[in-house]
Design a protein around this nucleic acid. Structure first.
Lengths: 208, 208
DNA sequence: GTCTATACTTTGATAGAC
DNA sequence: GTCTATCAAAGTATAGAC
């Protein structure tokens, strides 16, 4: 059984938005790529381009989120995982001739001030990444919820910004530098966290 | 004397590209905003939209670059300057309702794989920022050229990525977290650099 | 539900009068 | 060098046959 029309439209949209951004991707291009009749778009997505875009962003976000456990579940420690993460991103960037970086960053910047529906979809994706990364860093790094959240946000921000520089300069240097910055921060946080854990099993809620 | 047509076109383009990105900004919108006749665009910029965009990006880049000395020339030390820099960016973001972040990041992502002319213009701007930041950090922080370059790239990357998250989430939290990460890295680098300086006035060219 | 044809707008760009 | 008129193509969205 082949995938249905709706799924093909979303998959094609996710791929096009990731590579071209929101404004450069036309509905006509989407249906051509999805091998779908034009009218089907507005049958499955009455909200038009914005509704397609928002749904496609969420799909890309869920796929990309799987990279977090895929990388960090096999790492000996947190800083090593961070280095793997940035190295893997750099390698993928080179393999795709600096085309495939973050699937939603371009869309997020384009639509942040022009489409509330798209902005909220992108924000939801970033929040899910932060939640997934924070939980991973608490489990694998022994970090407190607050430290894990902060380190995760810093990691995502450093990665996103390094992507911007790397694609413009066609160089992985920004990814190497940003990755090392975050990895060293992870080293300090992890040693602090593990020390805290070995001293006091639960520093919070001692009075509750 | 009022500004001439060419200058008005470039100023209007720089403002529109910063807020809307490249693909959302039309040539017709530019001439309307610049109060210029439509045909003038192709008289002054035979290369069309790409030539206007490339020139406007360079102008925005030079303006934004002035923020580096404006902030760091008055700071007591490097880490404080880093915190001022991120705090100022956060404040400006809130004041503009999360519209004005980096004037070229959106354009850079949009055009990195579709217009070599635009990509090179953005890359040139980023390189000029890295050069200016590196020189500042060598002068004010006592960092080696290599350390200064790496810390500057990390600072710009962290700022750019924090902008992406902040605009999508309409929150300055990413700027606070990313800024603190870079500031703490600057603290370590500066103490290392100044120690090296006080031990050996000129570690390089000792044999020349 | 599927698919075609089309309406209407806007795009980047050009020609040519002045 | 200024400005208007216009082009061909692409944009999103809709109507309506099947």
């Amino acid at each position: 059984m082949a995938t249905d029309t709706r799924t093909r439209i979303l998959d094609a949209s996710a791929a096009l938005l990731a590579r071209q951004g929101y404004n450069a991707t036309g509905v006509k291009q989407i249906v051509t790529e999805a091998k779908a009749p034009f009218g089907s778009v507005y049958h499955h997505f009455p909200g038009g381009k914005q509704e397609i875009g928002a749904a496609a962003v969420v799909i890309s976000g869920k796929l990309y989120e799987q990279l977090i456990p895929a990388v960090f579940d096999n790492t000996p420690d947190l800083p090593t995982g961070v280095r793997w993460f940035f190295n893997g991103a750099a390698q993928h960037l080179v393999e795709t001739d600096f085309a495939d970086a973050c699937p939603i960053a371009t869309v997020a910047l384009e639509t942040a001030s022009t489409s509330e529906q798209m902005r909220e979809a992108c924000a939801a994706v970033f929040n899910s990444w932060i939640a997934a990364g924070s939980e991973m860093q608490q489990t694998r790094g022994g970090l407190s919820p607050e430290s894990a959240r902060r380190l995760t946000i810093a990691m995502i921000a450093a990665l996103e910004g390094a992507f911007v520089l790397a694609r413009a300069q066609r160089s992985v240097e920004p990814l190497e530098v940003a990755g090392e910055l975050v990895a060293e921060a992870a080293e300090r946080e992890q040693s602090l966290g593990q020390r805290a854990v070995s001293r006091a099993p639960a520093s919070d809620e001692t009075s509750g």
